[in-house]
Structures are given as C-alpha cells and as structure tokens.
Write a protein that binds this DNA or RNA. Structure first.
Lengths: 205, 205
DNA sequence: ATACCCATCCCCTTTTTCGATGATTTTTAT
DNA sequence: ATAAAAATCATCGAAAAAGGGGATGGGTAT
C-alpha cells in the first residue's frame, strides 16, 4: 500500500512539532512538509499535492475556513482535515461546509489522529465522537436554526441593521425582520441583547 | 550544571508531544512528565517538584490562572511559565499576577522556549518581545469599564430594557441611557448586538 | 484648590426594534 | 408526488434605542 502523504498548516510551531513527532515512525504515513500560514501553503501546493492536509482554523494571514474552500476548488483530490483547539460548533460546521472531510481537536491522541488521516484519505468523512456530539449541540439545547436564520444571526451579532442585512442578502427588510422575530422566539429572548448573549454562550457565534 | 527538570500541564496532547520532541535532545533539560488537567498535576506535585512547569491557560477542570496561584502558594520554589495560544493582555496579566515567571505563546520556536525555561529557572522573568509588547498596551485588548458600567452591561446582556434597569438600580432612565451610550463608545459598537458579542468574546459577561 | 473622572439627570429627533398577523413561493423530505 | 418546512414579503402601531446636545454634584488625586 502506498504511503499517505500528510501536509500540515499551523502557525503553532509546537503543534507542528508534536504532530511530526507523532507521525514520524508510522509506516503508512509520509511527512510531506508544513506551512505556518496561508500563502506558503498555497506556494507549496503549486509544486506538490499531498493526500491529506491538516489545517488549523486560526492562521495569521487567512482563516483556515476560507483557505479550505480555496484549496478544495483548486485541488479537489486533496483531502482536508480541520484542526483546532476549539470544539466549537460554528467552526466545525463552516469547515465541513467548505469541503473539509473531517475535524480533529488538538487534544486528540495518536490513534485518533491516525484513524482520521486514514479515513479521510479513503474518501470518507471523519468526526470524532466529541466533535459530532458538538455538532448535535444546538439540538441538545433545544434550539434548531435554519440555514438562513444562522446566517442572519451572525450578521445581527456583527452589529448589522436589518436594512444592511437585507441589502447584503438581496432580500426585503420585512423578510429579515421576520427571521429576526423567529430567532427571538426560538431563543426565548425578548430582545437582541439577550439573544446575542445566549447565542454566544452556546458558541453559535 | 544540574539539568533543569520540566513538567508540562496541557490538555492538548499534540502540544505536549511537540514540546517533548523539542526538548528531548537538550542536554540541559530533563523531562519530568506531563499532566492533562489540574488534578493530576496536583497529584504529581505531591511526589515531585520540578524546576519549571509549563502551564496551559485553558485546562479542562481548572483555569491555569487559578492553578498557577495555588501551586505558587504551596511550592514557591517551582517556577511557572504560562503557555497559551493567545497573546491576550488579560491572560498574561493574570498569570503574572498569580506568580508566573513568564509567558510563552505556542507558536514560539525551540530557541525561545529554551531561553524562557533557562531564564525562569534562574529566578528571572521571561516575556518574549511579542508578549511584552501586548502588555504595554492595555487598551488594545482590554476595555476599561467603571463599576457602574460593568453592572449595567450585565443587565443589558440579560435583556433588560433601560426602564427595567433604572427601576432595579433606583436611578433615572436617562442615567441608564448615558451609561449605555458610554458603553457603546468604549466598545466602538454602534448597537447593542455588537456590544454584547464583543463583551461575550472578551468574557466580560 | 483645582482639575478630573464618575455618576447622575434632562431634552430633542430619528431610526430601529418589537409584537401581532396573514399570505405566497420555494425547498426539502418522505 | 405530495406534504411539511423554510423563506419570502407585507402592514400597523407602540415601544425602545441610537445619536445628538448640555448640565450638576461628589469624590479623589496631584
């Protein structure tokens, strides 16, 4: 069986070093290299395409979420594993929506990391129990938001007014207002302040 | 010269592995062990006292900030180096106030880490340029609120209206309104949604 | 003593949100 | 294919917040 080549993008030297150390003696894994930011990652990919990229969400020059999308558009055969300190719903969701095949938290052990790499290399998705549990979290808290509602919740939390949101999404102010009202209902909040706080506590924003 | 024994407390396995890998061939350093949470760290310290502890700020069972204080009270001779993903004023400040001798960001390289360990082991403080730069501008990350403003911020985030707040605090609605305006100014927010989000992200509410 | 910050209070106008309903079209799921 | 869910648009009035002024005492630190 051919070795799986792994490339890592993470600005935290200690994490890169840790993963290198974890993987270096694995016979099925080939260390392809690493980058500490988005642009050097792009430069590397022009020369080589690894099988799997481990990608941190927080990079100095670009969000790992955007970089993920960009890479999947150019090199769809490269599998991407999100990598982050945070087991946070919004991050995981965005990475998966942007084409990532899995998501691993940095406290994962060697076995989990290996399993994740092998799994996504075989074209399947990998989410650890912990992560997929987090993906189900909004249900657990009893608040199920639609795609549009999540989108609008984010914009509200950024401080956008209804009119600004309506322009940005090319919909009527009335529609934005309706979504806003539905959000207030779902969060059992009587105003935006308490809504934003609850959303922040559920780590939805 | 006696080797410096180093113990690490971090719940991120990959970081522990990375640091171990970085330090394992250093002749001046002795790997003392690691813990992934506060309680196993306490248990270890009852048996052995390393020269230096590398301590993550975000631990599952206790904040590294509190743990730092606790350890320095019991074992003042143990030197503590804060370790975090974040170059954030409030964290650095709290760690140093609780007895840490230094603070290292996880993207630090081998040389910096070594220098930090050696320096704090000699009883001196170590702050990287990056970190001490952050410490010099408190306004950058920390918004200074007055007592009353904090109080009112909390009530706003709970969804109270100005009138409700005024009744609760036995002050005029106008006063509450003024505080609200000042909060918006200080947070550079144009409405409550963005204010609450920023406050939540700074963990003020 | 004299600035300075804080907390308090007041007025005004414009903009936005909230609350209550109703309805149509588009998507999604079974 | 059909039913359910989501997204869309709308009107109305009341309430609240945003944005702009200005003003008064009470500590407190130099």
């Amino acid at each position: 069986m051919k070795k799986v080549s792994v490339f890592i993008v993470d600005d935290h030297y200690m994490v890169v070093e840790g993963i290198r150390s974890l993987l270096q003696n694995e016979k099925d894994i080939e260390w392809s290299g690493h980058a500490t930011n988005g642009s050097s990652c792009r430069a590397f990919l022009k020369q080589h395409q690894p099988d799997v990229i481990l990608m941190d969400i927080n990079l100095p020059d670009i969000s790992g979420i955007d970089l993920c999308k960009e890479i999947k558009e150019k090199y769809p055969r490269v599998m991407i594993l999100g990598l982050s300190t945070f087991n946070q719903f919004s991050y995981i969701e965005k990475m998966m929506n942007n084409g990532a095949s899995g998501y691993v938290i940095k406290n994962a052990g060697k076995e989990e990391l290996l399993e994740a790499i092998i799994t996504v290399n075989n074209g399947k998705n990998y989410l650890s129990d912990e992560v997929s549990q987090t993906l189900r979290k909004p249900e657990a808290s009893g608040i199920l938001l639609t795609r549009r509602e999540k989108e609008i919740l984010l914009l509200i939390a950024e401080g956008k007014t209804n009119i600004e949101i309506s322009r940005q999404l090319f919909i009527s102010v009335n529609t934005v207002d309706t979504h806003r009202k539905n959000l207030l209902l779902k969060f059992e909040s009587k105003n935006i302040a308490s809504l934003v706080r609850k959303a922040a506590q559920l780590e939805l924003i």
